[in-house]
């Protein structure tokens, strides 16, 4: 039997983008902060567009430290969910057309979260990328970095641990 032809690029993109959309748009708090995700293959970048309501100290003005923490945590959870759902999305095990906030696979639960504030968050867009350093059956460890103008000048980073779904606390 001959090798089957690779899927068309539109089919692949549509499947991945609708899976990502279902994951992100089902969470009200992500919409509240205005966080979106850029996808390149399986790599995700969280984007936090600047908005007046994100300001903590109006006299500087600077992004609220709690917003920075929340942005890092959101990027970690979505990147982690994305990496453990990836195989099922690609194989068709998860039907992305039926993915909605009600049928979404359960999200990982945060155990702890440690944020390192390196510079004030300036009043402009911010970006974040997470690396899943360990994805076990029960626990996961994620490192996440955030920057604004320059990729190598981080304004915050964090390490977080999660309990994976099906092994809830």
């Amino acid at each position: 039997m001959g090798q089957s032809r690779p899927e068309s690029v539109q089919v692949v993109k549509q499947r991945r983008d609708s899976a990502l959309n279902a994951l992100v748009q089902g969470v009200p708090y992500i919409q509240f902060l205005g966080v979106t995700f850029d996808r390149r293959g399986d790599e995700l970048t969280g984007v936090l567009p600047f908005d007046e309501k994100l300001i903590g100290n109006p006299s500087l003005p600077a992004i609220h430290g709690g917003v920075t923490a929340a942005f890092l945590e959101i990027t970690s959870i979505i990147t982690l969910s994305w990496s453990f759902l990836w195989n099922d999305i690609e194989s068709g095990e998860i039907d992305v057309h039926k993915m909605s906030s009600d049928t979404l696979p359960r999200l990982p639960k945060t155990i702890d979260f440690s944020v390192d504030y390196l510079r004030p968050g300036l009043p402009r867009d911010a970006y974040a990328r997470a690396i899943v350093n360990r994805l076990g059956r029960r626990y996961a460890s994620v490192h996440v970095e955030a920057w604004q103008d320059r990729r190598n000048k981080l304004f915050a980073q964090a390490v977080c641990h999660f309990v994976m779904p099906h092994f809830s606390m």
């Binding site: 969470v27 009200p28 708090y29 609220h64 959101i74 359960r106 979260f113």
Partner: peptide, 16 residues
Amino acid sequence: IGDPQSRVIHGGAVSA
């Protein structure tokens, strides 16, 4: 809300 199924608020709001 951070988890639409359980309706629990997001950890990020607690952090803030």
